[in-house]
């Protein structure tokens, strides 16, 4: 149980991880992340990379939708901008991958700002639909532009880092995991400062926020920029991971996937974006495993996998919204609160 917080200065009280237990858990998680590639099979490393990419993108969407209250159904389309930027740079210029990722993030941020411009006039669901429109336009551009390889898309060479070719999950892990961690840390930092507070204020009461000194358009666009930059970085990582980028790689249903991830995880919490993205990435794997188990008794199980996945996906969205609207992060908080008082109150 936790008896009290004994802080002696404001700096300690403003820290991200304030209790000893939190610091221990964090250290354990970091150690686990470092050791994982040496212990896990390529299949598990593949999943870990996929989870990390989705965490990066979901965290970005969470900044825009969970924290700023601007609903976007364009996250997958933004990822495609980053993925194509990285692919084109890698193919035509062969620049270092960190530079390419950065360029992907910045390009996507610019596209995000352009998409965000209507956000001052167009609100709520109208804005969500405007982001669908932007996705349609981007899809059209990518499937008709010679530079992006039309409907065939682009195949790109693997990233190289000091002579090492990064084409296996083991090497890619060392690219994807650190980048994702830095992105998540950045997002957590954002909400310790005035920028993050301004985002939340816009979500809760945009008109009052303006009277309190927050220029709305500027901060809405900033939120769009950060969020789409995150999507672009995630898309760039995705491109290095799969090395084939086509217009069909990022369909609208993926945008819904990221929205579902932050709903299931918990909107407006950093932990929610992480938990939700991992959870939603793992659900299809669990279903696949389950289908494998029942195949001996019911031979058609694998054929039903795709539709069942669709049903489970929908049911998770609906179920969490109705029964646990704060998502997995809230469940986690409940567990923590329980142990704060344990064993004196159970």
């Amino acid at each position: 149980m936790r008896i009290g917080t004994l802080k002696t200065d404001y700096a300690a009280d403003e820290a991200l991880f304030d209790t000893g237990l939190q610091k221990c858990l964090l250290a354990l998680a970091l150690a686990g992340a470092v050791l994982l590639p040496f212990l896990a099979s390529p299949y598990w490393l593949f999943l870990a990379c996929l989870c990390a990419i989705n965490v990066a993108s979901a965290t970005g969407l969470n900044i825009l939708t969970g924290y700023t209250g601007l609903v976007s159904l364009g996250q997958a389309a933004f990822m495609s901008v980053g993925a194509y930027t990285v692919a084109v740079l890698e193919i035509h210029l062969g620049t270092p991958f960190l530079l390419n990722l950065l360029a992907g993030g910045l390009t996507t941020a610019l596209v995000g700002i352009a998409v965000g411009i209507p956000s001052l006039r167009v609100k709520g669901l109208y804005l969500a639909i405007a982001t669908i429109a932007a996705s349609v336009v981007l899809h059209f551009i990518f499937s008709h532009w010679a530079l992006t390889g039309g409907v065939q898309g682009l195949s790109m060479p693997p990233a190289r880092f000091f002579g090492v070719t990064m084409d296996q999950p083991f090497q890619l892990y060392w690219m994807i995991m650190p980048v994702t961690m830095l992105m998540v840390l950045g997002a957590a930092n954002l909400f310790r400062t005035r920028v993050g507070r301004a985002f939340i204020a816009i979500r809760d009461r945009d008109i009052s926020a303006e009277v309190l000194g927050i220029p709305l358009l500027r901060y809405k666009l900033m939120s769009f920029a950060v969020s789409s930059c995150y999507a672009g970085l995630a898309g760039g990582l995705w491109a290095y991971f799969f090395r084939v980028v086509t217009p069909e790689s990022f369909p609208l249903v993926n945008s819904i996937f990221y929205l579902a991830a932050i709903i299931v995880g918990g909107m407006g919490t950093i932990l929610g974006g992480i938990l939700g993205a991992i959870f939603m990435t793992m659900v299809p794997e669990v279903l696949k495993f389950g289908a494998g188990l029942v195949t001996p008794f019911y031979p058609d199980a694998l054929a039903l996998l795709a539709p069942v996945r669709t049903i489970v996906f929908g049911a998770l969205i609906v179920g969490f919204l109705i029964f646990e609207p704060q998502g997995l992060a809230e469940i986690w908080r409940r567990i923590r609160r329980f142990f704060h008082l344990w064993p004196f109150k159970t």
């Binding site: 609903v71 709520g124 969500a128 819904i256 579902a260 709903i263 039903l304 996906f313 969205i317 919204l321």
Partner: peptide, 28 residues
């Protein structure tokens, strides 16, 4: 009905989930 009073965005997402369930059910 259980979503009465929730934010319009949440209700909107419920209908997206519903669409997904119906599409899967039809395929099954």
């Amino acid at each position: 009905r259980p979503m009465l009073g929730e934010s319009p965005i949440s209700v909107f997402m419920v209908t997206i989930g519903l669409g997904s369930i119906l599409a899967g059910a039809v395929q099954v």
